[in-house]
Structure formats: structure tokens, C-alpha cells
Amino acid sequence: MTTNNEAILQVNDLHITFNTFSGKVHAVRGVQFDLRKGETLAIVGESGSGKSVTNKAIVGILSKNANIERGNIIYRGADLTQYSERQFTQIRGSKISMIFQDPMSSLNPIMKVGKQIMEALRVRNISKAEARQRAIELMIAVGIPDPEKRFEQYPFQFSGGMRQRIVIAIALACDPEVLICDEPTTALDVTIQAQILDLIKQIQKERDLSVIFITHDLGVVANVADRVAVMYAGKIVEYGTVDEIFYNPKHPYTWSLLVSMPDLDTSSSDELLVIPGTPPNMLYPPKGDAFAPRNRYAMRIDYEEDPPMYRVSDTHYAATWLLHPNAPKVEIPDVLKKRIAQQTERLVR
């Protein structure tokens, strides 16, 4: 692993709400993580858990009805939650960049892709000729064949995978050091997904980027991430290295995620468990652990008080009362045990 321990981005106790007609939506409720130089941190969670909102706050593109209630985002010693729009335009793209889920809609449909890449450079007063030159180099770097010709084309002339490559080229145009990928492969076909993942891994290495990789699919995570943060109902409930999360998960929600993850070995569908129930309505965030109603191991305290983060190892933490010294001993579900055993076996072989 190429990571060292220097955190270039720290999110502390972040609380974000949205004003809506039906009331305040508590989308993010105390998110805490750090991103280290050169690592890939995956944030995993069901849709609606607040992954996008957290990361939009980092780039300063929250919608107007959002409030940052509490907490801070420290990037290179500065608190981004205090940044003005003008300060944000200084770092967006050049320091922190972000790509989005749907490459079909992330590009302006009526502007040539070349121009859209150039634009990122042109706003930083780079001459037209140089911007063009660099845009073409970027297109080559993200694997667009025939870049000179493609430069003059419009987004509708590209396939989904190619568009996502263009989006990545745009995000990389000004050499950021942090790249946030918000479900970059969710909208793509499986084969294309793998290619885009490879591309992200490759550019991450080449440019020594620090990447936040958001996904709802744990299956993708094992491939790209160094560390994993599991998010549920606006909170991070467990984080650790990939190995710790996959082989020694502690939080029942992580268990359910792992169990519900399709696996090449799962031949019969009965083993593919779906997490019962639905995530809580964030208009009325529940008291206690938000996962309790869906958790068959829930205890009384779970409905009364939020569990603190318990330390499992120096790199592994989980917020579940099950880790309390007085908690009854609850074993990992058998299905999951079997899987972990299989995976370990495969690794050993």
C-alpha cells in the first residue's frame, strides 16, 4: 500500500440539513473521516445514506436549501465549510475535483467535448492553443481513441463509457490532488464498469491522487479501495481497511451489506439476502441507532442511545453496541462466515 499517514482532507462531525416544504431533512448527522495522501477511500452505503451530500459539501456545491449545521472540513489547514463561493472556485478542479454518477447528463449536450475539457483550463487563463494541446493529451490519457477527431464531437456521439472518460478528463484537467468519484460506474454496463474502474485505478497510481470512491456496491470496493467507510442514515457506522471490512466486519449493517452482495460463488439465490426494511426517513431521524429497526440483533439500548465508535484495531472502528464489553456475544451470521471462509481459502490458494 502506498499510503502514508498524512491526512490531506479531514471531515469532522459534519451535520448537514436541507430545508424542505415538509420540514428539515437531516441528511448528514455527524460524519467523520479522513482521507490520506495517495489512498483510495471507499464510502459505501445504501442510496439515500448521505454519501453524495457529504461529498458535495467538500466541493462546495450543495444546493441552496442546504445548511451545514455543525462540524468542519479541513483541507490543507483551511476549513472548507467557511469558504466563500469565490474561494471555492479557486480550489475546485485544481485541488479537489469530482465526477458524477450519470455520464449521460454530466456533459453539456450542446457543447463539443473538446471545448468542455478546454473550458476547465481556459478559466485558469491558459492560452487557447495550449489548452487545446493539453485537452488532447488528457483525452489520450483517459483512453479516447482518435482524440483529434473526437475533440470536435458532441456528447451524444459518445457511448456511456466514453462519456465517463471525458468527464474524468475534465476532472483531471487542472491536476487536482483529490478526486471524488460519486458512483462513477453505477450507470454503466458491467463490462464498461470494469474498464472505468481500471482507468480510475490507473490514473490514481500515475498521478498519486487521493481518491474518495462512493458506491452502494461493496463488490466494486474490494477492487479499488485501500480503506472503506460504511455509511448509514447520515453517519459512518464502521470503517477500516478493505481486509478488515471484508474479513472481520463488526457492524450488523456491514454484515447485511456483505451478505446482500452478489458473489461469483453464490450459485443459489437463497443465500443472497436482502436487507429487510427501508432506511429511516431523514425528516425524522430516529433516536438511538438508526439501524436498530432493521437489525435483528438490536437490543433495548439501541432504541435509546446512539452507540459510540468502538475501536477494533488502530485502523478499524465500528459504532455498534455489540462491541460494548457487556453486550451479549453475537456471532457473525453463518452465511457470511461461510463466504469469508471461501474468500480466505481462495486467497490462500
Binding site: R92, G93, M98, I99, L107, A120, I170, A171, C174
Partner: peptide
């Protein structure tokens, strides 16, 4: 989305 991308590119 392309407005978001336009803003994230600076």
C-alpha cells in the same frame, strides 16, 4: 448534472 460538473471544474 452538467452545471455541477461545470462548477466542479472551476
Amino acid at each position: 448534472d452538467y452545471m455541477l460538473l461545470a462548477r466542479t471544474k472551476g
